[in-house]
Design a protein around this nucleic acid. Structure first.
Lengths: 232, 232
DNA sequence: TTACTTAGTTGATAATTTCAACTAACATGC
DNA sequence: GCATGTTAGTTGAAATTATCAACTAAGTAA
């Protein structure tokens, strides 16, 4: 039983976000071909049914081809579909959010993407502006109750760096005490060899980032953790 | 520029949940045709590109055709895709969650669906069991911080009915005081004509459900509201 | 009128959050 | 060495918020 009507085209789009000096930025490229030629657009591509095992696999392949990188954080955002989002007709775009630290993108060489502040978006092709808006909303919301912002930093980072990341995502300062208690960090309580207690959402390493003051402990994260929420 | 490879088939699946005596139940039907003939499956169907304006529209059409109903709550869950979920090859299923009160389903006539407790799922066709698991997880999680359970009740309901709904979703009792303060309900504080104050997440009506005791005020909901969360 | 049942409110207590002040660890310059 | 500056990390008292048992309210039934 195959569908009796024309199947819509299926593509995968990626809202690749990173943290620049001015806050969250999105990676865009200028389209070479019609439709929407010369317009700014999200990276994306068609599913290769002979090659890709899932839409996430398609997203990873597209990013690998464009940047040589594999994002440490990648999640499906939502599927955008309809008759009018692409002038060629009914289409389906499985949209994803990827987070990659800016330094990693710089190290991988550039020229492929232009980065734009998510709060000052230029005109975009297709429904890509809507995809970016939803992605940013998702990231801001998730940042408010989870350790998601860690994926915008290098693998090891200090608590102050992480706090600044949260502040840049929210666009407002957060209290240092509140921030640390939210993460459950109590370095000193830990027994030798384990520097994060039960409640800690980050993994403490033995390394320190020594600058021109007291060195700060470097932390690491393995999986997304959620902040404690009210019970019933 | 059309894709140079075969396009995967795109369908829409719906995890239709309702509240039975024993808790959350999912609507399943037995498949008439191959593949997975005679197996239990979620309602779903192919996108009609000449008819549907979006995947939500496809979902609504499928539900209308099967039940004659339009769900008051419908949201996209996630898109499931890959080469192995359907024996016919690479496929894409845009999965949705729909909530409909049991009474409404009963009134609409039945026979189409069988209802199964979500915690005692039988074997399902394709990856439908995974879709149900994710949908239930989403609903349970969202119930913990929002008024989502309201959509499992008739349009007007009492606070006690709503509390029982939360309890059935969670599978545990909740304190009446905690429950009411979470919803910001303070009926008496309201000025004449408005029975819900600023903080209230429900809209109070002027009607009461009189049983064999003190009548309970009926409430209504217009949009999903989120409980207050910790500030930064 | 009394007893019973469920609806709705209240407020003292318990738990949690917040933040300013404190201590710690380094560098630098005298 | 030692004072000073700067950032890291901790502490705990005060402020806020959550919780639940006890109370009041409004109906039915006998």
């Amino acid at each position: 039983m195959s569908p009796s009507r024309p199947a819509p085209a299926v593509s995968v789009d990626i809202v690749l976000l990173t943290l620049g000096d001015t806050g969250l930025q999105v990676a865009l490229h200028r389209r070479d071909h019609a439709p929407c030629q010369h317009q700014l657009a999200l990276p994306g591509g068609y599913v290769h049914v002979d090659e890709d095992d899932s839409c996430e696999a398609t997203a990873k392949r597209v990013l690998r081809d464009k940047t040589g990188l594999e994002p440490r954080y990648l999640e499906q955002l939502r599927t955008f579909a309809g008759p009018r989002r692409d002038p060629r007709g009914w289409s389906v775009a499985v949209s994803h959010v990827a987070l990659i630290p800016l330094q990693q993108l710089r190290d991988a060489g550039d020229g492929v993407f232009h980065f734009y502040d998510v709060d000052q978006l230029p005109e975009l092709a297709f429904d890509h502006a809507e995809q970016v808006r939803e992605a940013v909303q998702r990231v801001r919301n998730k940042a408010s109750y989870s350790t998601l912002p860690c994926w915008l930093l290098p693998e090891r980072f200090t608590l102050t760096q992480l706090q600044h990341t949260y502040e840049q995502i929210f666009g407002e300062t957060v209290s240092r005490g509140t921030f640390r208690s939210r993460l459950g960090i109590k370095v000193a309580d830990a027994k030798p060899g384990e520097y994060a207690d039960e409640a800690a959402l980050l993994e403490a390493t033995e390394e320190f980032l020594g600058g021109k003051q007291r060195p700060a402990r470097l932390f690491r994260i393995n999986r997304l953790s959620l902040f404690k929420r009210a019970r019933w």
